[in-house]
Design a protein around this nucleic acid. Structure first.
Lengths: 343, 343
DNA sequence: CCGCTGGATGTTGACGTCAACATCCGCGGC
DNA sequence: GCCGCGGATGTTGACGTCAACATCCAGCGG
């Protein structure tokens, strides 16, 4: 019943030594029990387990990490974490990581520039992480992004193909299908409310949209620019509402589409009667907007899991995956915000 | 020019010894340079820095953590991380942590029950975290939540007052103000679309709503129950639309309000002409719904920062904050979804 | 009854870092 | 010229864990 646990030893709990003392065995035997080695007599094991329980012992992760050279932790760099696509991807990565026994260390960078991402990666690598996931480093470029050598990395951005293993939604097909959907409905051309200049996903969508219209021989207008927020969609929508030629708009995400639709309504233009609108992402609210939004669905959950798969193949199996690329399909969900143009 | 860095030493980079060898000094001198001690001759310091640079050295965090008993890491437990309130709070905590030099280890629990949260906390405490932030452990209860002893903890849930330091939005005032706003408009009573049974924030809103109506001597109806999703709001809205007595509904969050409004429209009941609707949270899209939603704004950003403040007071300053409680104000934002009942 | 075998358990050292203490060296004062 | 002092640098040990090796003992065959 005597308790001779060292009293004032900082914050960290009881050590393996304390347990060993209480159980009347050596530290090594305690270690064997806690790593699940099989050559421990059941009676001894029980005694050790009881001692662990009494002391509330849990192995010191720092010591294990030092011993093994691995933390069981992966770093995750995101920008504007609270945005829909980001937070859902993060959630999926965290979920997949937990399933594999890894913990996720999260860093939210101020800007998605190469400098900030480089700094965040350096910070994380000091944490002795086993691998690094970078989510949508929008304005970073492969050449200027400096990562710790020998660090397994995956990126959710197709721009990094050839430099880092990447997982990306098939935005090209998604955009083609969305534009074609509008043309099929009879629209003469499609306007585009794009994401900010410099953002890679925004540019891919702009390029594909333009290419498709050119390929179909349709008139081309300059893309409008938003910053992904509903407010920017609203502002651009006020401008667009002035233009009687506009009958169909492809928006680079759902938030901007929501803002746009509201601006159109306020200007007296009805969706889809006067103007058809397509979004991108399929956020949970999309279905309950008025009218329910036709949109290009991205499977963020799958993207998150694929990111983790790809990372673990490098971390665990030591596969060198320099230029692997995984494309996750997108899918057009047709709801009520698109229809034929007014005759 | 000779490079005698040990070749096959797993993943971790060069050690302090490698740098010392290259610079022709002892490991301790390298340590002094990297911790910024001042008693190193400038010439020596330069030599060491050059060696660090050449080798790409950075201190091994695991070893430091072992030595110091601290990781510079805080644990963050969340449930359904991708939800609006959660992701914005997480973002704010991560931001505040980074500003203070801490990294955040993220765990997303399957369910917000005491058991799952307890397990997650145990997992994290193995990571040698310095403190723990628990975001909205909805159905966990103070009594059954077992946390590692001596672990600094903060919780964003007022139910834990008296057990753990907590930061919570002032939902009580927010709910009172919202209900009164509807009564002031002339509604005879207010219906309530609540969150799931067992969720603490949901129950607080239910209790306050009921209490306010009773206090004002208004007729009381049983709260409808959703699960925070827009879909559940839609489903309850279909039921509610059948009831001609309903003229005002307070929803426990904005997503459910959006779903509810859509169901009302589909049933031919107009908002706010036939029915007024109030939401809760003020998510970014709220303003761009149709009609723009009157809602109770919660300042998630401030909540995140306050959580971090409270945690650091325990971690850094060793303040024992058992029952501290910080209340973050809420605010009713009146938009276009509320109005007087039809005469 | 002795020695051998094999499983259970103990001992040692190393992972990388840094505080405490030890040592070394140059310079100023007497 | 010698002593002492103080700043720069080196050495030792400890943080907690676990693999490798060492030891111990029970049981069995000869």
């Amino acid at each position: 019943m005597t308790s001779d646990v060292a009293p004032g030893r900082s914050r960290s709990g009881p050590s393996i030594q304390d347990v060993a003392r209480l159980a009347g065995v050596s530290a090594q035997t305690v270690s064997r029990v806690s790593t699940g080695a099989d050559n421990v007599r059941p009676a001894t094991r029980d005694r050790v387990l009881a001692a662990m329980d009494e002391l509330g012992y849990s192995p010191n992760h720092a010591a294990r990490a030092l011993r093994y050279g691995s933390f069981g932790t992966i770093g995750l760099i995101a920008h504007r974490l609270a945005r829909t696509g980001e937070s859902r991807t993060v959630e999926a990565v965290v979920e997949a990581a937990r399933a594999e026994g890894y913990t996720v260390s999260l860093v939210d960078v101020q800007s998605p520039s190469s400098d900030d991402v480089t700094a965040a990666a350096a910070r994380l690598s000091h944490q002795s992480i086993d691998g690094l996931v970078i989510i949508r480093a929008e304005t970073a470029t492969p050449a200027s992004l400096v990562l710790p050598p020998r660090m397994p990395v995956v990126v959710s951005d197709s721009r990094f193909v050839g430099h880092h293993p990447a997982v990306a939604a098939d935005q090209v097909t998604g955009t083609h299908v969305a534009v074609q959907h509008l043309l099929d409905l009879g629209h003469r051309t499609v306007h585009h409310l794009a994401g900010p200049v410099g953002s890679a996903p925004a540019e891919i969508r702009v390029d594909t949209w333009r290419e498709h219209l050119v390929g179909a021989g349709r008139p081309l207008t300059a893309p409008l620019r938003g910053d992904w927020t509903a407010r920017s969609g609203y502002e651009q929508g006020r401008l667009l509402a002035q233009d009687p030629d506009v009958t169909a708009v492809l928006c680079a995400n759902d938030e901007m589409a929501a803002g746009l639709i509201r601006a159109l309504y306020e200007a007296g233009r009805r969706v889809p009667d006067d103007i058809s609108v397509v979004g991108f992402d399929d956020i949970p609210l999309t279905e309950f907007l008025w009218p329910p939004l036709t949109t290009v669905q991205q499977d963020f959950h799958l993207i998150g899991h694929r990111l983790m798969d790809l990372l673990l193949r490098q971390v665990r199996d030591r596969e060198p995956l320099t230029d692997t690329r995984i494309v996750v399909p997108t899918r057009l969900v047709v709801r009520a915000s698109t229809g034929p143009p007014r005759a």
